[in-house]
Design a protein around this nucleic acid. Sequence first.
DNA 1: TGCCTAGGCTTCGTATACGATTTCGTACTC
DNA 2: GAGTACGAAATCGTATACGAAGCCTAGGCA
Lengths: 229, 229
Amino acid sequence: MTEVTGTAQDAAAEGSKSQQAYAAVTARIVDGTYPPGHRLVLAAIAQDLGVSVVPVREAIRRLEAEGLVTFQRNVGATVAGIDPTEYLYTMQTLSLVEGAATALSAPFIEAGDVARARSVNEEMRACLEHFDPVRFTRLNQDFHAILFEHCPNPHILDLVHRGWNRLASLRSSTFRFVPGRARESVEEHEGLLRLIEEGADADTIERAARTHRSATLDAYLAHAHDTRA
Amino acid sequence: MTEVTGTAQDAAAEGSKSQQAYAAVTARIVDGTYPPGHRLVLAAIAQDLGVSVVPVREAIRRLEAEGLVTFQRNVGATVAGIDPTEYLYTMQTLSLVEGAATALSAPFIEAGDVARARSVNEEMRACLEHFDPVRFTRLNQDFHAILFEHCPNPHILDLVHRGWNRLASLRSSTFRFVPGRARESVEEHEGLLRLIEEGADADTIERAARTHRSATLDAYLAHAHDTRA
DNA sequence: TGCCTAGGCTTCGTATACGATTTCGTACTC
DNA sequence: GAGTACGAAATCGTATACGAAGCCTAGGCA
C-alpha cells in the first residue's frame, strides 16, 4: 500500500469505501487538484465520491496520520502545506530513511535493476537539455524507487514511501528552484549505481545515498537564502 | 483556552470521543490489558468506554496507521504481535531514527540534561544487582528520552516515539532474554554521555547511538539462535 | 466415519439523523 | 466610526440502524 505510482481509476474499483476515499483524496492531493491549504469539507467530498461521510472521515484520519493533511477538531481538515520549515524536516527525514533503505536494499539489487535504473538516469540526462522540472522529478523518483524498493525492512520502506508522498505535494519539486542541482544529481546517481555494482558495504552506500539527498536540500536552502538576501 | 495534551488518565476527560478511545485503547495495549494477538471487537470496546462504535473505529484506524494493531477488512483488528521478525524490523528502524534523533538533539542538550541522564544511568547500574527487567527497561527508556527529546526535527522525533511505543508491547523487553546485555548497555550509555559532553560531531554521536541499539538487537538475535540450536 | 454444504450468529461497513461547535455576517451601542 | 454581541448558516461529531461479509456449527451424503 501507500503506492506511489497508481492511478485514481483502479483505486476506485477497490474494496472498501474508506479505501476508495483514501485513494481518491490522496490522488487529488498528489496531482494538485487539492492544493496545499485547500480545505477538505467532508460532506462535499462524500457527495463527490457518491459515498457517505463516514468513510471519508476515516480516509482523512489516515491522511492525517501520514501527515498529508492537518486536522483541527470541530473545524476540519486542510491539505498540509509545505512551508520551507516542513520541507526541511521532510527532506531531512527522507534522507535518513531513504539512505538506510537504499543500503539495505543494495544486496538484493540484480543486474537487471541496475540496468533499468541506469536507463532512467540516461533519460534524466537527456532531459537536462529541454529542462522540465516535473518530468525530471518523476524520473528522479522512478530512479530512486528502483534502488530502495528491495529494502527487506517493510517499516523503513513504508517511511520512504510516506516521505515521497509528502513531497509529491509540491509537484515540480526542488529542481524548479535549483535547476543547477539537476546535473549534479544525475552524476551522483551514476556514482551510486557504481557503488552498488561493485558491492560496496552498506555504510558506504547509505552515506552516499543520504548525502545525495542532503545535497539537494542544501542547494535549496542556499538558493532560498540567496533569494532572500 | 484550548486543552492540549495530558496524561493517559485525564485524556479520558479530554475533548473528542475519538481521542478518548484512542488514548484508552493505546493505554490498554501498552500496559498489557490487551496482549498481543488480542482481538479488538469494536462494539465491545465502544460499550466499555460508553461511546458509540464510530469513534472507536477512528481510534483503531489511527492505531493501525501507527502499527500497534493490524486490521483486516470485514474481519477486525488484533493487537499487533511482536514475532521475532517484527521485533527485528522495529529495532532496526528504531536504531536508525533514534540514532539520528540523538545526534540532532545533542547540540541542544544542556549540562543539566546530561546530569539527569547520568543519574538515571546510575540508577540502572544500581538496578543491575537485583535485576528487574521491567524496571530496567523503564529506566532505559527514560535515559534515551532525555537524549533524543530535544531533536529539532518533529518528524524524526515522532518516529522515535512510535518505535518505542511498539516495543512497549513486550513489557519486559529484550533484557529479560539477554540480561548479560544490561551491563554493557550501562557502560555504553556513559560513553554516549561523554561524547555529548565533549561536543562530538553529529556523525560520531549518530553512529554511537545506532550501534548501541543495534548491539542490543544483535545480542537478542544471538540469544535466539543459541536457544534454538 | 469423513467431507461437504447450509443455516444462523457474530462482527464489520456504511448510510442516515440529529446534536454540538465554530464561524461569519449583521445590527446595535458607545 | 469602531467594537461588540447576537444569531444564522455551515460543518463537524456521534449515535443509531440496517445491510453485508466472514465464521462456526449442525446436518446430510458418499
